[in-house]
Protein backbone atom coordinates (compact mmCIF):
# COMPACT_ATOMS: atom_id res chain seq x y z
CA UNK A 1 0.00 0.00 0.00
CA UNK A 2 1.27 3.41 -0.89
CA UNK A 3 1.64 5.66 2.10
CA UNK A 4 0.64 9.29 1.79
CA UNK A 5 3.52 11.68 2.47
CA UNK A 6 3.22 14.01 5.43
CA UNK A 7 2.94 17.55 4.05
CA UNK A 8 5.03 20.38 5.49
CA UNK A 9 3.08 21.73 8.47
CA UNK A 10 2.55 25.10 6.76
CA UNK A 11 0.49 23.43 4.03
CA UNK A 12 -1.48 21.37 6.52
CA UNK A 13 -2.18 24.46 8.66
CA UNK A 14 -3.30 26.61 5.74
CA UNK A 15 -5.56 23.89 4.43
CA UNK A 16 -7.43 23.30 7.69
CA UNK A 17 -7.26 26.48 9.77
CA UNK A 18 -10.55 27.98 8.51
CA UNK A 19 -12.52 24.83 9.18
CA UNK A 20 -10.94 24.40 12.61
CA UNK A 21 -11.84 27.98 13.57
CA UNK A 22 -15.39 27.52 12.34
CA UNK A 23 -15.80 24.37 14.40
CA UNK A 24 -14.37 25.98 17.51
CA UNK A 25 -16.53 29.11 17.24
CA UNK A 26 -19.53 26.88 16.98
CA UNK A 27 -18.49 24.77 19.97
CA UNK A 28 -17.05 27.27 22.46
CA UNK A 29 -18.22 30.67 21.16
CA UNK A 30 -16.35 33.47 19.43
CA UNK A 31 -14.79 34.74 22.62
CA UNK A 32 -13.01 31.53 23.53
CA UNK A 33 -12.41 30.31 20.00
CA UNK A 34 -9.11 32.14 19.47
CA UNK A 35 -7.40 30.51 22.45
CA UNK A 36 -8.82 27.14 21.49
CA UNK A 37 -7.59 27.64 17.93
CA UNK A 38 -4.05 28.27 19.11
CA UNK A 39 -4.22 25.33 21.48
CA UNK A 40 -5.47 23.02 18.72
CA UNK A 41 -2.61 23.77 16.34
CA UNK A 42 0.00 23.70 19.09
CA UNK A 43 -1.22 20.21 20.03
CA UNK A 44 -1.11 19.26 16.36
CA UNK A 45 2.47 20.54 16.11
CA UNK A 46 3.43 18.53 19.17
CA UNK A 47 2.10 15.35 17.64
CA UNK A 48 3.08 16.08 14.04
CA UNK A 49 6.56 14.61 14.31
CA UNK A 50 5.14 11.27 15.38
CA UNK A 51 2.74 10.95 12.46
CA UNK A 52 3.53 7.97 10.32
CA UNK A 53 1.66 9.02 7.20
CA UNK A 54 -0.36 11.90 5.84
CA UNK A 55 -3.70 10.16 5.62
CA UNK A 56 -6.90 11.43 7.27
CA UNK A 57 -5.24 14.64 8.45
CA UNK A 58 -8.51 16.55 8.27
CA UNK A 59 -10.27 14.07 10.55
CA UNK A 60 -7.21 14.05 12.78
CA UNK A 61 -7.09 17.83 13.32
CA UNK A 62 -10.86 18.10 13.75
CA UNK A 63 -10.62 15.45 16.47
CA UNK A 64 -7.95 17.49 18.24
CA UNK A 65 -10.14 20.60 17.91
CA UNK A 66 -13.08 18.65 19.38
CA UNK A 67 -10.96 17.60 22.36
CA UNK A 68 -9.75 21.16 22.90
CA UNK A 69 -13.35 22.41 22.74
CA UNK A 70 -14.42 19.86 25.36
CA UNK A 71 -11.51 20.85 27.63
CA UNK A 72 -12.34 24.52 27.15
CA UNK A 73 -15.96 24.03 28.15
CA UNK A 74 -15.04 21.88 31.13
CA UNK A 75 -12.58 24.46 32.37
CA UNK A 76 -14.84 27.41 31.58
CA UNK A 77 -17.78 26.51 33.81
CA UNK A 78 -16.57 26.78 37.35
CA UNK A 79 -13.09 28.22 37.01
CA UNK A 80 -13.20 31.20 34.71
CA UNK A 81 -16.10 32.63 36.68
CA UNK A 82 -14.27 32.13 39.95
CA UNK A 83 -11.30 34.04 38.59
CA UNK A 84 -13.52 36.92 37.60
CA UNK A 85 -14.97 37.11 41.09
CA UNK A 86 -11.51 37.54 42.54
CA UNK A 87 -10.90 40.45 40.20
CA UNK A 88 -14.22 42.21 40.51
CA UNK A 89 -14.69 43.65 43.96
CA UNK A 90 -18.17 45.02 43.35
CA UNK A 91 -19.67 41.62 42.92
CA UNK A 92 -20.65 39.77 46.09
CA UNK A 93 -18.53 36.65 46.31
CA UNK A 94 -19.99 33.33 47.34
CA UNK A 95 -18.76 33.84 50.90
CA UNK A 96 -20.91 36.94 51.21
CA UNK A 97 -23.91 35.45 49.51
CA UNK A 98 -23.76 32.13 51.34
CA UNK A 99 -24.95 33.39 54.75
CA UNK A 100 -27.53 35.68 53.11
CA UNK A 101 -29.03 32.85 51.15
CA UNK A 102 -28.87 30.37 53.97
CA UNK A 103 -32.24 28.73 54.45
CA UNK A 104 -33.44 29.07 50.87
CA UNK A 105 -34.57 25.86 49.17
CA UNK A 106 -31.45 24.26 47.61
CA UNK A 107 -32.33 24.93 43.99
CA UNK A 108 -33.27 28.57 44.58
CA UNK A 109 -30.15 29.11 46.63
CA UNK A 110 -27.93 27.63 43.93
CA UNK A 111 -29.64 29.72 41.26
CA UNK A 112 -29.26 32.95 43.26
CA UNK A 113 -25.64 32.30 44.10
CA UNK A 114 -24.75 31.35 40.55
CA UNK A 115 -26.60 34.31 39.10
CA UNK A 116 -25.57 37.06 41.49
CA UNK A 117 -22.42 35.59 43.02
CA UNK A 118 -20.86 34.14 39.93
CA UNK A 119 -22.67 36.20 37.31
CA UNK A 120 -23.51 33.16 35.23
CA UNK A 121 -26.09 33.46 32.49
CA UNK A 122 -29.34 31.53 32.87
CA UNK A 123 -28.38 29.00 30.25
CA UNK A 124 -25.14 28.32 32.12
CA UNK A 125 -27.07 27.99 35.39
CA UNK A 126 -29.52 25.66 33.69
CA UNK A 127 -26.60 23.49 32.57
CA UNK A 128 -25.10 23.51 36.06
CA UNK A 129 -28.41 22.59 37.72
CA UNK A 130 -29.39 20.19 34.98
CA UNK A 131 -32.65 22.02 34.37
CA UNK A 132 -34.16 24.27 31.72
CA UNK A 133 -33.21 27.91 31.28
CA UNK A 134 -36.73 28.96 32.23
CA UNK A 135 -36.62 26.87 35.41
CA UNK A 136 -33.28 28.43 36.33
CA UNK A 137 -34.66 31.94 35.81
CA UNK A 138 -37.72 31.03 37.86
CA UNK A 139 -35.65 29.59 40.71
CA UNK A 140 -33.43 32.69 40.88
CA UNK A 141 -36.34 35.15 40.90
CA UNK A 142 -38.34 33.16 43.45
CA UNK A 143 -35.22 33.01 45.63
CA UNK A 144 -34.66 36.75 45.39
CA UNK A 145 -38.31 37.49 46.23
CA UNK A 146 -38.05 35.21 49.23
CA UNK A 147 -34.91 37.00 50.40
CA UNK A 148 -36.58 40.40 50.03
CA UNK A 149 -39.53 39.31 52.11
CA UNK A 150 -37.16 38.00 54.71
CA UNK A 151 -35.18 41.28 54.98
CA UNK A 152 -38.33 43.40 55.39
Amino acid sequence: MQSVAIPPFEHFYREHRSEVLRLLRHRVGTERADDAFQETFLRALQAYRRLEHGQHLRAWVLTIAGNVAADTLRRARPQSELVEIGVDDDRPAFEELAPMTDGLPPKERAAVVLRYGYDLSYDQIAAALDSSEEAARQAASTGVRRLRRRSQ
Binding site: I6, F9, E10, R49
Partner: peptide
Protein backbone atom coordinates in the same frame (compact mmCIF):
# COMPACT_ATOMS: atom_id res chain seq x y z
CA UNK B 1 8.83 23.73 1.81
CA UNK B 2 9.21 20.09 0.82
CA UNK B 3 12.95 20.61 0.59
CA UNK B 4 13.05 22.17 4.07
CA UNK B 5 11.02 19.28 5.47
CA UNK B 6 13.59 16.84 4.10
CA UNK B 7 16.37 18.78 5.81
CA UNK B 8 14.90 19.40 9.23
CA UNK B 9 11.57 17.63 9.66
CA UNK B 10 7.94 18.17 8.65
CA UNK B 11 7.15 20.97 11.08
CA UNK B 12 7.90 23.74 8.59
CA UNK B 13 6.14 26.97 9.48
CA UNK B 14 6.27 30.54 8.28
Amino acid sequence: LERLARIGGPRVLR
